[in-house]
Amino acid sequence: MLNTVYRDALKKRDEAKSIFKGERFEQIIKAAKENWIDYTPQKKDSIIAGIDSSYNSTKFQGLELWVVTAVSIKSDGKIITEMHNQGLGQPSPELEIQASKMEVDACTQSIDKADLVILDGSLYSQFLTRQSTLGSTITSAIKKKHNVIFISKTSSARKQFEKMGSVAGDIFYYNHALKKPGFSKIFVDSDLGPGKIVTYVYARLRDSTPLIKIEMLGSDHKEDEIKNLLDRITKNSVGGYPYALKLAHENCKISNSDLSRLVSLYGLTNEISSREVLN
């Protein structure tokens, strides 16, 4: 890299540090603390299904070898459903949309087989996808038993402290404000319009574990419901994260080496060099 980039980085160091300190930062931290409800979850038995999807592809000479997988798995390792799609050529619809659709399908198949269905990621991404039918499918699936939630480890949403001049996502300030278990006050977001109201909280299951963001459909959610939810998630969680989701991720992920094996199975090894696969 150019040396000038490093010199510039040194100059901007103080500016970058202002994100972590200063009056504005302290004000937001104070607000985050006031917004926090201390609660130590009690372990409650529940059958939890975790759902995740993955996709990967390698392009060569105008072609693309692609794979999409999704899985719904319970905390005891039993798979409720697994699905996949693969092809050579231009994926249609796009891989991201295919993955979202598989997640929704897996969710539909899981709601009657688990007390709680957790999808990895955000409800927003389901609503904001370009395939409009997905939004309605997931909405009706959720409404069937009201046992579907979304959990993500990261979030760039900055709706709660934006007016106070926040630079980072809301999750950043909650992370810095407190290390105790509990959750942020319920935030209802109706920006996507009626029928697509998203309620969410930031929560910490155990002392000093990373925050997670929990999203639910609809506006009619109370603190007691959140507490009950945290109790159930905590029972089978590791490091503050639901184990079913970890299992789902481990089961469906498509690594580059997996893709290399597929290239070999398709008999394309001579067409694509290993370097291209890894790229």
Partner: peptide
């Protein structure tokens, strides 16, 4: 340690662990 204890619990549940 905490993570080890939690992981032990979930490992006991998971027959494929």
């Amino acid at each position: 340690f905490d993570e080890a204890v939690e992981s032990k619990e979930v490992a006991e549940l998971n027959s494929r662990d």
